[in-house]
């Protein structure tokens, strides 16, 4: 396997244009958590013309609801949740400048189109490897929606957080390519 590409958000158009489906990437720096309920609230704010609790331009959202942190740890287990549930909300955030999403599972066509049009990337992390992924998360800080518990938006400081590019800005999809290569 080829060497991993290192990325630190915020990401520019040039950063994401250099990525190809299948690339292994190590992310360091700041990323944000967000899943079903938080996405709904963000979209409601956008529709009512109110400011968002985070600046999403150039940022990466990680679809995750970590388990509670034990004393001395930043988070508990923190692997990705299934991404299609965020498909209804993602195109709007991509249009506003979101550059990356980390999750697991295929995205809908509207999300794929938005990624090509506005230059954004969808990364897969290893689903179900929550204990392993947590080792790359050094700090977690509540940003918004504490009442949502595991679904609150948190700012994570990560070091060499391992992901794989699934959808790139050329419209490639690693899930489709992988199946083509290995189906018997």
């Amino acid at each position: 396997m080829s060497d991993a590409i290192r990325l630190t958000p915020p990401l520019s158009d040039e950063d994401v244009e250099g990525l190809q489906a299948g690339d292994r990437v190590l992310i360091s720096g700041t990323i944000y958590t967000g899943r079903d309920a938080a996405h709904k609230r963000l979209i409601d704010l956008i529709h009512s013309g109110e400011p968002l609790p985070i600046e999403i331009k150039g940022q990466i959202i990680y679809y995750v609801g970590p388990s509670p942190a034990k004393p001395g740890m930043a988070v508990g287990a923190a692997g990705p949740t299934t991404s299609y549930r965020m498909d209804a909300y993602a195109p709007e955030l991509i249009r506003l400048g979101l550059k990356g999403m980390i999750g697991k599972g295929a995205r809908g066509q509207a999300v794929k189109n938005a990624m090509v049009k506005h230059k954004a990337i969808y990364f897969a992390a290893i689903g179900g490897a929550g204990a392993l992924m947590a080792q790359a998360i050094k700090k977690a800080e509540l940003v918004a929606y504490e009442d949502l518990g595991p679904e609150a938006i948190r700012r994570l400081e990560v070091e060499e957080f391992p992901v794989i590019v699934v959808n790139d800005v050329q419209g490639n999809d690693l899930y489709e390519e992988g199946i083509k290569e290995y189906a018997i």
């Binding site: 609801g65 034990k70 692997g79 949740t81 290893i126 204990a131 392993l132």
Partner: peptide, 28 residues
């Protein structure tokens, strides 16, 4: 698949970390 093999090895590693640190295998 090399990627597949790598993922499976990481799942073994994940289970080891979970057991050693007493943290969940998966956040869900």
């Amino acid at each position: 698949s090399p990627t597949g093999k790598d993922i499976l090895e990481k799942l073994v590693e994940n289970a080891r970390i979970a057991q050693e640190k007493g943290i969940p295998i998966c956040q869900d």
